[in-house]
Computed example of a mutant assay.
Amino acid sequence: MSNTLSSNESNPSGKKKIIVLGSGPNRIGQGIEFDYCCVHGLLAIKEAGYEAIMVNCNPETVSTDFDIADKLYFEPVYWEHLWEIIELEKPEGVIVQLGGQTALKLAKRLHEKGIRIIGTSYDNMDIAEDRGRFSDLLKELDIPYPQYGTAYTADEAIEVANQVGYPVLVRPSYVLGGQRMRIVINDEEVEKAVISLLKHIPNNKILIDHFLDRCQEAEIDGIFDGTDFHVMGVMEHIEPAGIHSGDSNAVLPAFNLTPMEVTTMEFYAEKIARALNIRGLINIQFAVKEGKVFVIEANPRASRTTPFIAKAYGIPYLNIATKVMLEDKKLKDFTIKKQLKGYAIKEPVFSFDKFPGVNKELGPEMKSTGEAIRFIKDLRDPYFRQLYKERSMHLSK
Rank of each mutant, 00 (worst) to 15 (best):
M1V: 14
M1R: 11
N3T: 14
L5C: 07
S7R: 13
E9R: 13
N11C: 12
S13M: 03
K15M: 12
I18C: 11
G22W: 05
P25R: 14
R27Y: 01
I28S: 04
E33L: 01
Y36I: 14
Y36K: 12
A44D: 10
K46T: 02
G49E: 00
A52V: 04
M54D: 09
N56V: 11
C57R: 11
N58F: 12
E60G: 14
S63R: 02
D65E: 14
F66G: 00
F66E: 14
A69E: 10
Y73E: 07
Y73D: 04
F74I: 04
L82Q: 09
W83R: 13
E84D: 13
I85Y: 04
E87R: 15
L88F: 00
K90P: 04
P91S: 08
L98H: 08
L98M: 07
G99S: 07
G100S: 05
K105V: 01
K105S: 13
A107I: 04
E112F: 02
I118A: 07
I118D: 03
G119S: 12
G119A: 06
I127N: 10
D136C: 12
E140H: 10
P144L: 13
P146R: 09
Q147Y: 12
Y148L: 11
G149P: 05
A151M: 11
D155E: 15
Y166D: 11
P167Q: 05
P167Y: 08
V168T: 00
V175N: 09
R182S: 13
D187R: 03
L198R: 04
I201Q: 10
N203A: 13
N203E: 15
N204A: 15
N204T: 15
I206T: 00
I208R: 07
H210G: 00
F211W: 09
E217V: 07
A218T: 03
D221H: 05
F224G: 02
H230T: 12
V231D: 02
M232W: 01
G233C: 14
G233S: 14
V234H: 06
M235F: 08
E236V: 06
H237D: 01
I238S: 02
I238M: 08
P240D: 11
P240K: 11
I243F: 09
S245P: 09
S245K: 07
G246P: 01
S248Q: 03
A250P: 00
A250S: 15
N256P: 00
Y268V: 03
Y268L: 04
N277F: 05
I278W: 03
I284R: 10
A287R: 02
E290G: 09
K292R: 14
V295Y: 02
I296F: 08
E297I: 10
E297H: 08
S303R: 03
T305A: 01
T305R: 09
T306S: 13
P307S: 04
F308R: 08
I309N: 05
I309A: 13
K311G: 00
I315D: 03
L318C: 12
A321I: 01
T322S: 09
K323F: 01
V324Y: 02
V324L: 06
E327P: 01
K330W: 06
T335Y: 04
G342Q: 03
K346T: 00
P348S: 01
V349W: 03
S351I: 12
S351F: 12
S351K: 07
S351A: 15
D353W: 11
K354I: 10
G357I: 02
L362D: 06
G363E: 05
M366K: 10
I373R: 02
R380A: 14
D381Y: 02
F384P: 01
L387K: 12
L387Y: 06
Y388E: 13
M393K: 15
H394T: 06
